[in-house]
Amino acid sequence: MSWKKALIPLATLPVILLLAYGFRTDPKSIPSPLVRKEAPNFRIAVYDGAELSLASLRGKPVIVNFWASWCFPACYEEAPLMEATWRKYKDQGLLMVGVVIQDKEPNAREFMRRFDYSFPNGPDPGSKISIDFGVYGVPETFFIDRKGRIAYKHVGALVPELMEAQIQALLKG
């Protein structure tokens, strides 16, 4: 085969490589630039509670869960796990904060009643906390280590195995 004939398959090679890269990449999986960086501080007015600031929780592992009552079914699927995890680990120093996105207060309260939520939850007026955390959907969960850095971000409903592995890593760190 002359070099001219070899040019045609050679010319298609970069296109094939580019397509292979594109098809192997999940367009929905967008890495957060915040992971392994310090979590943005926020103050949240907790339902039936005092104002809470993330900075005041420094030194303890924190899970920040963004949810909404209109987020069906994902938020409803992970809600029992959130509450069970809180009850299991709260005595070991783990803290959990729920940030309610673009929701009506009665609906959010109904959701909390339904799943018997006992960890602090509060609204995010103006979605400032959500934007500061680069949230683009619900549910999203951030695992923050004792140094205040985001160790892991999960998009979508959490599953027990993943939750357990992340908490163990946080408690060890």
Binding site: I30, P31, S32, P33, L34, I131, D132, F133, G134
Partner: peptide, 8 residues
């Protein structure tokens, strides 16, 4: 915004 969401 890039620092929060990336170049996306």
């Amino acid at each position: 915004f890039v620092s929060r969401y990336g170049e996306f």
